[in-house]
Nucleic acid binder design. Structure first.
Length: 924
RNA sequence: GCCGGUGUGGCGAAAUGGCAGACGCACAGGACUUAAAAUCCUGGGGCCUUAAACAGCCGUGUGGGUUCGAGUCCCACCACCGGCACCA
């Protein structure tokens, strides 16, 4: 343990946290607001309208307030953003730096099921703990903008945005969302009818509309966990078991709400090129979107007498249309709708047995365990459209119903999976691609040259793969047999959960004149739609969602019924960054003025600031949200953009992932390993400034790195040295007493601690100015590049030197405190205040003190050390006047005693001289 | 299997193609102290010489290459971490 305290952080930190809170130091001001003249912001920007200032929006991924409290991983990102927020304020930018709670979620609900305690209660307790912990770290959040996704004033707008999705369709012609009223009906739905026919038409029109909405209903399989009595999201199912409790889960079809994110696949992919995210993160999103270019090809069915003429074909998607001549069989997913009708009587039993077997398999068994291919022949055949051959149609579970058309043409010669399958079932394998010299053609899947690919009308032979693809696609299109197609792996977003602790859908169900149920949106005036009070949070015995228990809530007087599903946890986090802009607004999710100022580009242009960018200027968070949250939020933002509610097509223009913090043993922190570090313990022992500083000093922000409590002591000692540079050695006794005395007396001794007598209002020496300006330069550059660890080392270098000065000029120490402030704000404020007391006149409050500029004049050296190399090996370091010309350097290098033995008797073939840098003598 | 990232002292790490190891931890020696803690000062990659030092040689995962000069750029490989995984 640390033994005696290095400095009285236990008195300093609460003092300044209270001060910032009372003064609202870090409030940001919306357009049209008046900045109170006594607010510290006014000291820097007196008389300026907030909207005239260049903005900087810096955002953290808000936490889920779990019962376990804050984890050391949270403050890593939060400290990084806080440092930048404080730095940007010092640079004169108007900073928006908010925090909130993503508080809907399963743990609170599970706890409610077990104890009967309302999730609201658990959530409030957890938020209180999280807020206390986050506040104790001294972050400069504007707490007046705090949001909580479970507050009705918040989720009112989550429901409102859902209604926007519900009331929109995606117009492929304009490639954007438009209000559902603009959806044209097809000709057959446009006729005017009367009487009973009108009612029938109306319900067909409704069905048509409903099938085009961005939010739509469909029957989809979900994970059902009998033991937990609830449905789980994919992320909550690990290897066929529930993540909570490790109970088995089964697939069960249920009526589900979906969001049409697939309509945005192309824009989600394309716009990645416009944003500044790490390559790995963008790549993860690209993989998730999974774009592939290829062709859809129709294969005529050989025996199809029972089918309508337009159905006598089988459509497949392929990325390798150039291999069409090599398609020797076809495979349907077992769930494909044509399986039933294609199967011959002789094969029916086998097909039914196979389908039953597949239905029992979990997804896991269908993928990982399925090393061995399985499948059965349907008895049916298709015709290869280019060769005219009759080829068999099989079903096999290696073909997925959810991708492409759920059917493939199999080219066993040049596809690994088809090759395995054909080998096992003795299907013909033919070569249609020639690999580059000497390689085996069987199973060759890369690009090569087309062979054996010709019929009476078309020959691909001799064409390289890309060219062959183009040629055959054109031919298929001309013949009406196929067309160029782009496919995405991305699936529509399953948006409903059978839960209690989530946003209820603002929808009701009615029964149509045809007896069919249909859904209708609630009016905006009905928002927020609150969930009902319940005393049991389990689903109903019939497997209905918990909300169905509240009969009075579900059944409305007019006979209609409420939707009983709730939204997933992701809903609230899809737009929270917009609510921060105007969190108290009761009339809108955010005023257009606030949105334009904080997210748009106009204010930046008006202020002429080259630094201001559109959208969130910097978003910091963990990689665990690489695809889900970050994809969903981009999708919602684009819909809001299309509908005119936000000004930019992307929400987060720059994003940085903080790296994982491992335990001291280099393993992932986990309760079971017993290597979890509790931030509260570190704060108690070393204080918030040391904790913040250590998390930034560990290594580069984005890197995974192990925790070291010894390392905390190191930066803690540094802060102690800073303290001792500023305070009188003779204050030792007071300090000692302030540590040991009862709390009420401690402050008394604390106040008696005197500023060091070595601090003077004096002219700084060139050496002192050089130390300061080198520090300014390094810290500034490193903050701009998010290199916090090396910035801190520069601060250490400065203090190590300043400690040795007998007399310390105030003019040098004050700028140092401005540099220190973002990293260790409490200590910096305390020393700034003490300095201010001893050396008036008054200056701006530290939080808004202008960032010091580096004056390069003070960094100029009179002499420089120049390394001298012979054949690239270091032989000497010579000291020469700065700015010495090349000839002088060369002569000095050759004259060096240490260099002499290496060049004597040898010819100097070449001399490389970089003035001010280096001399390299090349000898032969 | 595919994609992305990372390999540097005992440890965390630092180095616009130009003095490898800044800064910090741990360690060792010294000062202060009755003593300890705290603090301050000094030392330090390896090998080989040496009383000690100087000098010398080797050294950034491995093997090649480009260059006057490579931790840094190029090619091939190895290990670890993360993501995706029958996506036709």
């Amino acid at each position: 343990m640390a033994g005696r305290r290095q400095y009285p952080f236990n008195l300093i930190e609460p003092k300044w946290q209270h001060h910032w809170q009372a003064e609202q130091t870090f409030r940001a001001f919306n357009p049209g607001e008046t900045i109170p003249p006594q607010h510290p912001f006014a000291a820097r920007h007196r008389g300026t309208r907030p909207e005239a200032l260049p903005k900087f929006y810096i955002l953290d991924m808000f936490p889920y307030p779990s019962g376990a409290g804050l984890h050391v991983g949270h403050p890593e990102g939060y400290t990084a953003t806080d440092i930048l927020a404080r730095y940007k304020r010092a640079c004169g930018l108007h900073v928006l730096h908010p925090m909130g709670w993503d508080a809907f979620g399963l743990p609170a609900e599970q706890y409610a099921i077990k104890t009967g305690q309302h999730p609201r209660k658990t959530t409030e307790q957890n938020i209180t703990t999280f807020k206390r912990q986050i506040r104790s770290l001294g972050f400069s959040y504007d707490w007046s903008r705090e949001v909580d996704t479970t507050a009705p004033e918040y989720f009112k707008w989550t429901q409102w945005i859902f209604l926007k999705l519900y009331n929109s369709w995606f117009n492929p012609a304009s490639n954007r969302a438009e209000p559902i009223d603009t959806l044209p009906y097809p000709a057959e739905l446009n006729s005017t009818e009367s009487g009973p026919a009108a009612a029938a038409l109306e319900s067909r029109r409704r069905a048509y509309r409903d099938s085009r909405r961005l939010a739509y209903v469909t029957e989809a399989p979900v994970w059902w966990c009998e033991q937990l009595g609830t449905v789980l999201a994919n992320e909550e199912v690990v290897e066929g078991k529930s993540e909570v409790g490790d109970f088995p889960v089964v697939r069960k079809p249920m009526r589900q709400w979906m969001l049409r994110i697939t309509a945005y696949a192309e824009r989600l992919l394309r716009d990645l090129d416009t944003i500044d995210w790490s390559d790995s993160l963008k790549e993860m999103q690209r993989n998730w979107l999974g774009r592939s270019e290829g062709a859809e090809v129709d294969f005529p069915l050989a025996e199809a007498d029972t089918l309508a003429p337009e159905e006598r074909r089988l459509r497949v998607f392929t990325t390798r249309p150039d291999t069409l001549f090599g398609a020797t069989y076809m495979v349907l997913a077992p769930e494909h709708r044509l399986v039933e009708r294609l199967t011959t009587p002789a094969q029916r039993a086998a097909v039914e047995a196979y389908k039953a077997q597949v239905a029992k398999k979990s997804d896991l068994e269908r993928t990982e365990l399925a090393k061995e291919k399985t499948g059965v022949f349907t008895g049916a055949h298709a015709i290869n459209p280019v060769t005219g051959s009759r080829i068999p149609i099989w079903i096999a579970d290696y073909v997925l119903i959810s991708y492409g058309t759920g059917a493939i043409m199999a080219v066993p010669g040049h596809d690994t999976r088809d090759f395995e399958f054909a080998t096992k079932f003795n299907l013909p394998i033919v070569q249609v691609v020639e690999p580059p010299e000497g390689q085996e053609w069987r199973g060759f899947v890369a690009d090569g040259t087309a062979v054996n690919s010709a019929n009476a009308e078309l020959s691909l032979n001799g064409l390289p793969t890309p060219e062959a693809k183009r040629r055959i696609t054109e031919w298929l299109e001309a013949k009406g047999l196929g067309k160029k197609t782009i496919n995405y792996k991305l699936r529509d977003w399953l948006f409903s959960r059978q839960r209690y602790w989530g946003e209820p859908f603002p929808l009701i169900w009615k029964t149509g004149s045809d007896g069919q149920p249909y859904h209708e949106a609630l009016p905006e005036s009905a928002l927020p739609l609150l969930p009902p009070a319940l005393d049991d949070y389990k689903p109903t015995p019939e497997g209905q969602p918990p909300l169905a228990r509240a009969k009075d809530w579900v059944n409305l007087p007019d006979g209609s019924r409420r939707e009983t599903n709730t939204m997933p946890q992701w809903a609230g986090s899809c737009w929270y960054y917009l609510r921060y802009l105007d969190p108290q607004n009761r009339a809108a999710f955010c005023s257009p003025e606030a949105e334009r100022y904080w997210m748009g580009t106009r204010s930046a242009a008006a202020a002429g600031s080259p630094r201001a960018t559109p959208g969130v200027d910097l978003y910091v968070g963990g990689t665990e949200h690489a695809v889900l949250h970050l994809l969903y939020a981009r999708f919602w933002h684009k819909v809001l953009y299309d509908l005119g509610h936000v000004s930019t097509p992307e929400p987060f223009y720059k994003l940085v992932n903080q790296g994982l913090i491992l335990g001291e043993d280099g393993q992932k922190m986990s309760k079971s390993r017993g290597n979890v570090i509790n931030p509260d313990d570190i704060l108690f022992e070393y204080g918030a400034d040391a904790f913040r500083l250590y998390e930034m000093f560990m290594g580069p922000l984005e890197m995974t790195k192990p925790w070291s409590t010894k390392g905390v002591e190191g930066v803690y000692r540094f802060l102690g040295r800073v303290w001792r540079v500023f305070v009188e050695e003779a204050s030792e006794t007071e300090f000692e007493q302030s540590c040991t005395a009862a709390p009420d007396r401690a402050a008394e001794f604390f106040e008696k601690i005197k500023l060091s007598g070595s601090i003077r209002a004096m002219q700084p020496s060139p050496v002192q100015l050089k130390a300061l300006h080198a520090c300014i330069k390094k810290v500034t550059e490193d903050l701009d590049g998010l290199r916090f660890n090396t910035a801190i080392s520069a601060l250490m270098v400065f203090i190590n030197e300043a400690m040795t000065w007998e007399a310390k000029p105030v003019e040098v120490l004050r700028p140092f405190l401005i540099l220190l402030q973002p990293f260790a704000p409490h200590l910096a404020e305390e020393l700034w205040a003490r300095l201010h007391q001893a050396f008036p006149p008054s200056l701006a409050p530290l939080a808004y003190a202008p960032w010091p500029a580096c004056n390069p004049e003070w960094l100029i050296e009179t002499t420089v050390e120049i390394p001298v190399q012979v054949n690239g090996k270091l032989r000497d370091v010579i000291i020469v006047p700065a700015g010495a010309p090349a000839a002088e350097l060369e002569a000095a290098a050759k004259a060096s005693e240490k260099v002499q033995p290496f060049i004597q008797g040898k010819t100097i073939r070449k001399v490389i001289v970089l003035p001010g840098k280096l001399v390299n003598l090349v000898v032969g």
